[in-house]
Simulated scan of single mutants.
Amino acid sequence: MTLRDVLAWHVLPASLVEVLVEGDLPSAFGRLLIFAPLALEKGASLAFCGPSGSRWTLAVAKVAVSYVLREHHADAAPLVIVIGCEATPEGAACLTAWFKPCGVPVFRAATIEAVRVIMARKGSARPVLLDLPDGGIYAPGGRAFVHEVIE
């Protein structure tokens, strides 16, 4: 199968397929997509979710560190918190290890009630990054937890 065949199979518009098949794919995406720094506002929440292995936890880490480097001052408390919503403690432990040098607190919330408690205690000015579990759309009830957390 060619790249054109694969993109057509995913039902991309023909005009987009034409742009993407010109040259190499990374260059085509570079021409189409412009990424600005993510402006995480004080008090806002941002959730990351995707299939296992899609590196959304790494995206959480990059956003958190970027925010801390931009906003954190030596005399201020950490301005962002991270909530790891995984059923296993390993994910939160990994996040904790990544963020310890930056002073970013990480909380594990394997239940909706745990997320509610953390959000109620966080303070209104602190942004929150949520590292959600695999929201597999094909698994039975796969997105139910994700939708509840977002609500």
Rank of each mutant, 00 (worst) to 15 (best):
P37F: 06
A76C: 10
A93M: 09
L79C: 12
W98F: 10
C94N: 04
V106T: 12
K42N: 11
P51V: 12
L95A: 05
I81S: 03
A97Q: 15
P89K: 06
S52D: 06
L69P: 00
A36V: 06
G23D: 13
L33G: 00
T96R: 13
P78Y: 08
A39G: 08
T88Q: 13
K100H: 12
A36Y: 11
V19H: 06
E18T: 14
F107S: 01
V65S: 02
R55I: 01
K42I: 00
S66N: 14
A36W: 07
L33N: 05
A92S: 15
P89C: 05
V65R: 10
S45T: 14
L20M: 13
C85T: 05
W98Q: 07
W56K: 06
F48I: 04
L33C: 12
S52E: 12
S52H: 07
A39F: 03
S45Y: 03
I83L: 15
A74T: 08
P26L: 08
G50V: 08
E41L: 12
S54E: 01
G84S: 15
D75M: 09
A74F: 13
V63Y: 06
S66P: 00
L20K: 03
G30C: 07
S27N: 12
C102W: 13
A59Q: 05
E41W: 00
P51N: 07
P105T: 08
H73T: 13
V82R: 01
F35C: 10
A61S: 13
A77M: 09
V19I: 12
A47K: 04
F35S: 12
F99L: 11
A109V: 11
C85V: 06
R70E: 15
A28Q: 02
T57V: 08
G23M: 10
L46F: 13
K100V: 08
P37S: 12
F48Y: 09
A47D: 05
W56V: 03
A61I: 02
L25S: 02
A77F: 05
A44C: 10
A97C: 05
G50D: 08
T96Q: 14
L69H: 10
C85N: 04
P89A: 14
